[in-house]
Amino acid sequence: MTEFVLVAGAWLGASAWDEVVPALRAAGHGAHPVTLTGVGEKRGLPVGRQTHVADIVDEVERLDLREVVLVGHSYSGIPVGQAADRIGDRLARVVFVDACVPADGESFVSTWWQGPAALEAEIAGNGGFWAPLPAPDFEGQGLTDEQIARIVTDSTPHPGAALSDPAVLSGPLGRLAATYVKCLLDGPEPTDDVTALLTEARWELVTMDTGHWPMYSQPHELVRILTEAAART
């Protein structure tokens, strides 16, 4: 049995996986959605260095999970990639769902596509938090109005301290067994850093014909991809 530990991206907590978890469990797997400190039902809790990495590692160790597939979506690929580096032989595979990947010494903010200053200013102007997206920003991502409403309802401001936290890796990420899921409505090609990792023997690319939030737009297809990835460990 595979134990899936599921971590959604910025603004979102465990509820993002509400349509994924039952299907994984029905297939005989463990499914453990994680809410990172400072978002969702953990809104208001303090966030410091490596807090989100610790959230993930602590969940794996608290439940004494083995044969773990860590799943990181969007921003959460950064703490998930670091957690994968730390849970040792408990790890079976990492699945990055349209996600950022960590680079030692770099943060989500430092690699922001519009430049770090733009995101730093946005966070500073919102009291140290990254404000959730409004509903119109989800258009063109393969979501129904109902699904957009769910994401907006599920979202809470994301602590800027986590976004600016530099990643700490003990070795190259390419040594891990990993699946990268590219959601094509969010861009046809992976970023350059992911493209480089996909040349590694233990990395594979899978595509989905949907947008950046497949746990909402195509949960059953995502479950299929996750279970097939786990079978390759």
Rank of each mutant, 00 (worst) to 15 (best):
K182G: 00
N126V: 10
P22R: 08
P188K: 07
V5I: 12
E204C: 04
W112D: 15
I56W: 09
L143D: 03
E3T: 04
V109Q: 11
A8N: 07
V21G: 01
L70E: 08
F96P: 00
H212F: 01
I225Q: 03
L63R: 15
H73D: 02
L198E: 11
T199F: 01
T199K: 09
G128R: 09
Y216P: 00
A124P: 00
E146P: 05
W213A: 13
R43V: 15
A23D: 15
N126I: 12
H158A: 14
A149Q: 13
S110P: 01
A167D: 10
G140N: 10
G160C: 10
A54K: 11
A149D: 15
E61G: 02
A14Y: 01
A8H: 07
G171V: 09
L12P: 00
R62C: 07
S217K: 00
D145Q: 15
Q218N: 06
S107L: 12
G140E: 14
G140D: 13
V97R: 00
A162Y: 11
G211N: 05
V39G: 06
T179Y: 01
V5W: 06
A117N: 11
V80N: 06
P166F: 11
S217T: 00
R175C: 02
L163H: 05
L63P: 02
Q114C: 07
G127Q: 13
A23T: 14
Q147N: 09
G81S: 09
Q82R: 08
P116N: 12
V194K: 00
G81Q: 09
S155W: 08
L119W: 11
V80M: 08
A8I: 02
A16D: 04
A99M: 05
G160S: 11
F96D: 03
D192L: 14
C100I: 00
D18G: 00
T153N: 08
I87E: 15
G40H: 10
P219C: 03
V206S: 01
D145L: 15
V21P: 00
L12Y: 03
T37I: 11
V57F: 12
G187Y: 04
N126P: 03
P46D: 10
T51D: 08
R86G: 03
W113Y: 12
K42V: 08
V206M: 02
G125R: 07
L226W: 05
E228L: 10
V68Q: 06
G48Q: 12
T144S: 15
G48I: 13
P190Y: 02
P134F: 09
S170C: 08
H73R: 02
S74G: 02
P79I: 13
P219L: 06
P116R: 10
G127K: 11
T111I: 06
V97E: 01
A23C: 08
A23G: 04
K182F: 00
V60I: 13
A10P: 01
L226P: 01
P136F: 07
R224D: 14
W113R: 12
A149R: 14
I148N: 07
P22W: 14
A196C: 00
V194G: 03
H73L: 04
R90S: 12
A229M: 03
A167T: 07
G48T: 13
V57Y: 12
G211W: 07
A14D: 09
P219R: 05
